[in-house]
Design a protein around this nucleic acid. Structure first.
Length: 266
DNA sequence: TCTGCATGAAAAA
DNA sequence: TTTTCCTGCAGAG
């Protein structure tokens, strides 16, 4: 489930649950045993998200916990008592009031501040970070001959967009996904940036991605089914919502891309 | 119960 | 460009 909105939501949630609290940490699976031992007994300052990365700061130590969920990773949390720690449980954090389990992450490691800086340095602007600078992304896009659909997934261009947001953003702006990124004009890019900021903020509020209706504050839930929540994502073979053309699918940038070949011609 | 696929990205080649 | 990480789910049987 993790595109950028999900990570920002987790950061907010985990800050609320852990900030100012001393945590017990363990790695029943063993793969993060040394790191968990270092964290054990520390007081959490806060959790932060940048793109699809999570960072946890601690009050009494300079190291930072870095988590990247990748495709499979996920958190589960709840009130005590914690369930038996079976399976590949990479990290469990516990306070008197909450347990948080992390399974299957691509990255779960302790970094020094320089290591964190290295990761942040290779991330493009994150639409969910206030005052993030879309011009940094524009400087990359305007010179890139790769398909716009591949460029949008490149985290060093924009941080936080995943396969759902890229397909939906391209549809909403009628862009041919296979056209070179450099074909965009600056005005279009600014409109796309404003749109992805609004879409992802709505995603944080709702806890899910919905691109087919306005980001209305009062309608937290949105459409009942996934099919109604998207214009093109995973709708291959179904009729386009706007003109009825069959939605297509192809591998672009290493992931499956969905688009309407008649609506998206700009 | 089994199989294939999935919202990601680094390492290997 | 391909492989690997190795979880969870939906759909088939």
């Amino acid at each position: 489930m993790p595109e950028g909105h999900a990570l920002h939501r987790l950061a907010r949630q985990h800050t609320g649950l852990l900030a100012g609290r001393q945590v017990s940490a363990s790695s029943p699976q063993g793969r993060f045993a040394a790191g968990a031992a270092r964290i054990d007994g520390q007081t959490v300052r806060r959790a932060r998200a940048r793109g699809k990365h999570l960072f946890y700061d601690f009050a009494g130590m300079p190291e930072i916990l870095h988590v990247h969920l990748g495709l499979y990773g996920g958190f589960v949390s709840g009130p005590p008592p914690a369930p038996p720690s079976g399976g590949a449980l990479r990290l469990r954090l516990e306070t008197d009031e909450i347990w948080i389990d992390l399974r299957g992450p691509t990255a779960c490691e302790l970094l020094d501040p320089a290591g964190e800086k290295l990761i942040l340095a290779r991330l493009g602007p994150d639409p969910l970070v206030p005052r993030a600078d879309p011009a940094r992304a524009w400087q990359r896009l305007r010179r890139s001959r790769t398909p716009i659909a591949a460029a949008l997934l490149d985290q060093s261009v924009i941080a936080g967009i995943g396969n759902v947001y890229r397909a939906e953003l391209l549809f909403r702006h009628r862009r041919d996904p296979l056209a070179p990124a450099s074909r965009l004009d600056e005005e279009t890019w600014q409109a796309m940036w404003a749109d992805i900021v609004a879409l992802m903020r709505a995603g944080v509020r709702r806890g899910r991605i919905v691109t087919t209706e306005p980001a209305d504050r009062d309608r937290r839930s949105g459409p009942a089914s996934r099919d109604d929540a998207y214009y093109v994502y995973r709708r291959q073979g179904l009729p386009c919502r706007l003109d009825g053309t069959e939605i297509r699918v192809a591998e672009v940038g290493g992931r499956r891309l969905y688009w309407c070949p008649t609506c998206q011609i700009l």
